[in-house]
Nucleic acid binder design. Structure first.
Lengths: 106, 106
DNA sequence: ACGCTATTTCCATATTTTTCGAAATTGTGT
DNA sequence: ACACAATTTCGAAAAATATGGAAATAGCGT
């Protein structure tokens, strides 16, 4: 993973509304959630939600799939794993936390 | 960890310059690095560096300690571990990646 | 084709971030 | 007290982000 991409993903998650949005999608599980359903849970205008969603999709943290008129959104676990892996690598250049996190993402 | 704090830390890391800065501190290890030394490696004005550093310190990702006239900066591993733990928890509400990451931060 | 719902794009505005030169501050040694 | 080095604060400009109303688009059922 390149530093620029990691930074873009971190920035995407570094907004309370988007982090909440991502959380909602994660908790929705494999079934995902329609944009409209997410909007109901977040209670923000659709245009605002669309902007935030686009950011998460563009950075590879969320995927979308059409089902009739609704758009199903899903958290992209491999994308998040790659990001966590990058952070762990950066963090664990030192031994302090290497034993703990190193195993996980090997 | 609260969502707001996680978002603040993610946003702090979500800037290429700051992520690079954090990387440098991680690679410097326990000894840390003086602000001036970091500046030499990043080649940015001291005032700009100071702002970025402050952001990392304020969000709990970096610590500072005075040694004579120089300020030693260190990556705060527990802070990063807490953040990774939060991300892993969010990510692993689903089973897809729970087995792998769950063990690491238990 | 039409009507309906779901979602995005367009547009504008308020806010925040980024950047950095210049001045101020802090701490040490003499 | 003074000089010097290291770092921060001040102040200000440019750029990016966040937000949302209104209009446009996409896709399905009839």
């Amino acid at each position: 993973m390149k530093l620029e991409k990691a930074a873009a993903q971190l920035e995407a998650l570094g907004n309370p509304t988007r982090l909440q949005l991502y959380r909602i999608l994660v908790r929705a599980g494999d079934g995902g959630l329609a944009v409209g359903s997410v909007q109901g849970k977040l209670d923000i205008p659709s245009s605002t939600l669309s902007h935030h969603l686009k950011r998460l999709v563009d950075t590879g943290l969320v995927t979308q799939e059409r089902q009739a008129t609704t758009l199903i959104c899903r958290a992209n676990y491999p994308g998040m794993n790659a990001l966590i892996g990058y952070l762990a690598d950066e963090c664990c250049a030192d031994a302090t936390c290497a034993p703990a996190v190193g195993k996980a993402l090997a």
